[in-house]
């Protein structure tokens, strides 16, 4: 497979990933509004939410119980995963082309991304 066809394939996969993420966020959003549409809300003062919105395990746990907030966060995590998948695909692409230099460059970027996710959450 040549360079450009691989790129277009990856581009299409990314767009599918974004659409899937958006669909999950939308589902969570509809559920949220169905349950809490009349509740008064204010975001004037910042207070970080609970585990269910801030950690990987908390989000997955909340989404498994079909809680609206957990579903939205799960969709956003899927979204954050799309550029990371993009870099992972690039490593494979460069390896197939036997381009060692750029396989290594892409791996460095992937390591930074994974470090930031794991270190933070």
């Amino acid at each position: 497979m040549d360079d450009r066809r691989l790129e277009i394939l990856i581009g299409n996969l990314l767009r599918a990933g974004v659409m899937l993420a958006a669909a999950v966020v939308l589902a969570g959003g509809i559920l949220y509004l169905a349950q809490q549409h009349g509740q008064p809300v204010s975001y004037h003062v910042f207070h970080p939410g609970g585990e269910d919105t801030r950690t990987l395990s908390g989000v997955i746990h909340s989404a498994m119980h079909l809680e609206s907030v957990g579903l939205i966060q799960l969709g956003l995590l899927l979204l954050i995963a799309t550029p990371i998948a993009r870099v992972a695909f690039a490593i494979v692409g460069f390896a197939l082309e036997r381009d060692r230099l750029y396989a290594i460059v892409s791996t460095i970027v992937l390591v930074i991304l994974i470090y930031s996710l794991l270190h933070a959450t």
């Binding site: 959003g29 975001y43 919105t53 907030v69 939205i72 956003l76 550029p83 930031s116 933070a120 959450t121």
Partner: peptide, 26 residues
């Protein structure tokens, strides 16, 4: 890719509130 690098920090600090991020992202 750049944004994904800081997303983890934002998420763990509670900057990504699902009720705000949902309508904004969509």
């Amino acid at each position: 890719v750049t944004a994904a690098a800081s997303a983890g920090v934002y998420l763990s600090r509670g900057y990504v509130d699902p009720r705000v991020a949902m309508p904004v992202m969509l």
